[in-house]
Each structure stands twice: as structure tokens, then as C-alpha cells.
């Protein structure tokens, strides 16, 4: 009986450490992320623009296309590049992203080996512009520099670009994980699509736990590489970059995605509604970490309202 009570208390305490969906929305997203500033996160072009001043490294934008007629010049503009990434500015879940790795003659080839001629690329960009990947809104297609992944990350994640997801509250990273594409996730670094999630210790950058499809694993399911006990390269820079980026946007509860390039980390995107699965990846609840920041003077919306992005007419 005593043991049962003790166990129940233990369960209750564990429960209180978890950040749940209702709490995340009511206590963090609504008070700390004003809807007005969502576009900064939702539109990747805007994100880059805002972060330019913050001296946060982002992948270079090579070209953008926002209208059908602009595609006339695509062929001459694009022929100079042999590797690049096509992205919808407002896409979600990695939809609509095409990674071109090489060019032979007039044909480009994607990471997966699919051949793309000019017409095929034009068609894909047309889809992006017409909002196929952004819930029916018209969108902008971004052509940006392809990130050369750090050799260590290539080894850890040979099937695609891995990234580090950090939950940043009031400019402080609270929890982070590394997301690694798998065969099951079809090259995408999204946990609910079947990517690996690896918990990382914030102070050391050491990987601690890994989950794959809700199960705890220690090795990559496709390559068999050991996942635990590695140190993510440029870890201090990653943390510093997440702080710098967070200080530069009026959003105080963020998911920041950073890729590890050969020379420097690069910020990929920021997310105003970061998921909760990161707790499973780290095998730890997020609330103690968030509540430790309670008395931190992070601005809430009422104060942040004075901030105005240039783009707001």
C-alpha cells in the first residue's frame, strides 16, 4: 500500500514534468508568440531577412520566383548552378523541397537520383507558386544554396540533411535534439514522418537518447551507426546562434532548426508551434526547464508589441 502510494506520487511528479499540448498552447504559445509575428517564422524568406541583422548564418538565397511570368528567365539564371535546393517559402513538414546535387549537360539530378530538366524544374516551381505545398495560398519559390553537411553529420545522417531542433524560451535553449532522416521518413527530418530523434545535452552537445517511431534505439535503423555518446560539431556556436536568433525575433517560445555545415552552423527555419516529441527524444519532461526561466525578463506580447517588422505595411 505504501509502495503503491509512493509509486502514484512518482507518476504524478513525472506527469508534472511533462509539457502537454494544452499547456504548451495556453501557457507558452499564446502568451509568448503573438499571432502578428507568426509570418516571421512561417515565411522562410522573411525569417532570413529578419535574421540578416542578427549576424546569424543562413543558407544563401540564390533566386526567388513569385510569379509565373518570372519563370521565363529561369533557364539562363539557373544554368550557372549545379547544386541548389528548391523550397516553398511557406511550406510545412518538408513538403515541396527538392535537393539538386549535380548537373550533367542540361540535366540536373536530385539527391535521390531523379533527373530534372528545365521543364521539370519549372513545373515544380509553378506548383510552389500556385500554393500546392502551402495549404492553397499562393507562395514564393526559393532557390537557395545547398548546405554542405559537416563530415561528421554526413556519417551520422547519410540519407539527407540532419538538423538540430532547439526549443528556445525567453532567449534560452531549454531542450534540443538532433533529427536524422531515415528511409522511413523519405529523407525528411520530421519525427512524425519517421525520422530519428536524438536527445542532446545542452551543455556538452553530447547525444544521450534516441527514438525511432516511438521506440528507444541506440543505432541508426538503416546504417547501424551508433547514435549515442557523440558530440555534435560546433556545439557552442549552435547554442550561441539559437540565442542570437531568438533575441532578434519578437517570439519567445520557439523551435529553432539549425543545420551543421562544414564551416559553420546554418539556421534553417524557426517554428512558432514546436512539437512535444522532443521530450521523448531526451527522455525528459520540459516543464522544469521552462519554469526555471519564469523570472527571466523575457518580454511577453504586451511589451513586444512595440516591435514592428519592416514588412508590415
Amino acid at each position: 500500500m505504501k509502495r503503491l502510494l509512493k509509486r502514484l506520487r512518482e507518476i504524478r511528479n513525472n506527469t508534472r514534468r511533462m509539457l502537454t499540448m494544452n499547456q504548451r498552447n495556453l501557457h507558452y504559445i499564446y502568451p509568448y508568440n503573438h499571432r502578428r509575428y507568426f509570418p516571421i517564422a512561417d515565411n522562410k524568406l522573411l525569417t532570413k531577412e529578419v535574421l540578416q541583422d542578427a549576424a546569424v548564418a543562413v543558407p544563401d538565397t540564390l533566386l526567388t520566383y513569385d510569379a509565373f511570368y518570372a519563370l521565363r528567365t529561369l533557364e539562363e539564371e539557373l544554368c550557372a548552378y549545379s547544386d541548389f535546393v528548391i523550397k516553398p517559402a511557406r511550406g510545412s513538414g518538408g513538403g515541396g523541397i527538392v535537393v539538386i546535387t549535380r548537373k550533367t549537360g542540361d540535366t540536373w539530378y536530385s539527391a535521390g537520383g531523379t533527373a530534372y530538366n528545365v521543364d521539370k524544374i519549372k513545373r515544380h516551381i509553378t506548383d510552389i507558386i500556385f500554393g500546392v505545398y502551402s495549404f492553397g495560398l499562393s507562395d514564393v519559390a526559393i532557390i537557395e544554396q545547398r548546405i554542405d553537411q559537416h563530415p561528421f553529420m554526413c556519417e551520422l545522417s547519410p540519407l539527407g540533411l540532419a538538423d538540430v531542433r532547439l526549443i528556445v524560451h525567453k532567449h534560452e535553449p531549454v531542450l534540443c535534439m538532433c533529427r536524422i532522416p531515415t528511409q522511413a521518413s523519405d529523407g525528411k527530418a520530421n519525427l512524425h514522418q519517421g525520422a530519428l530523434g536524438i536527445g542532446i545535452d545542452i551543455d556538452s552537445g553530447l547525444t544521450s537518447h534516441a527514438i525511432f517511431k516511438d521506440k528507444q534505439v541506440t543505432h541508426h535503423p538503416d546504417t547501424g551507426i551508433e547514435l549515442i555518446g557523440n558530440t555534435i560539431p560546433y556545439w557552442d556556436q549552435v547554442i550561441a546562434m539559437s540565442r542570437a536568433a531568438a533575441e532578434h525575433v519578437p517570439l519567445k517560445y520557439l523551435g529553432i532548426d539549425i543545420a551543421i555545415g562544414t564551416e559553420t552552423p546554418l539556421l534553417l527555419e524557426i517554428n512558432v508551434r514546436p512539437g512535444l516529441q522532443i521530450q521523448n527524444a531526451n527522455q525528459i519532461g520540459m516543464r522544469p526547464g521552462l519554469e526555471a526561466l519564469r523570472y527571466q525578463t523575457g518580454q511577453t506580447n504586451s511589451q513586444a508589441n512595440s516591435w514592428k517588422p519592416d514588412h508590415e505595411a
Binding site: 507518476i11 513525472n14 511533462m18 501557457h27 521523448n280
Partner: peptide, 21 residues
């Protein structure tokens, strides 16, 4: 702000963990 029933399942390993986190 209570925990959704489905979240008990989602975070079961953490919630029903024997030793404290």
C-alpha cells in the same frame, strides 16, 4: 491544461519511469 489521455500514452515511458527523471 490537464494532460490529454492520448498524452499519457505518448509520454508513457517518461510518466511511468521507475526512477525519477
Amino acid at each position: 491544461i490537464g494532460m490529454r489521455l492520448s498524452e499519457f500514452i505518448r509520454f508513457r515511458k517518461l510518466i511511468f519511469a521507475k526512477e525519477a527523471q
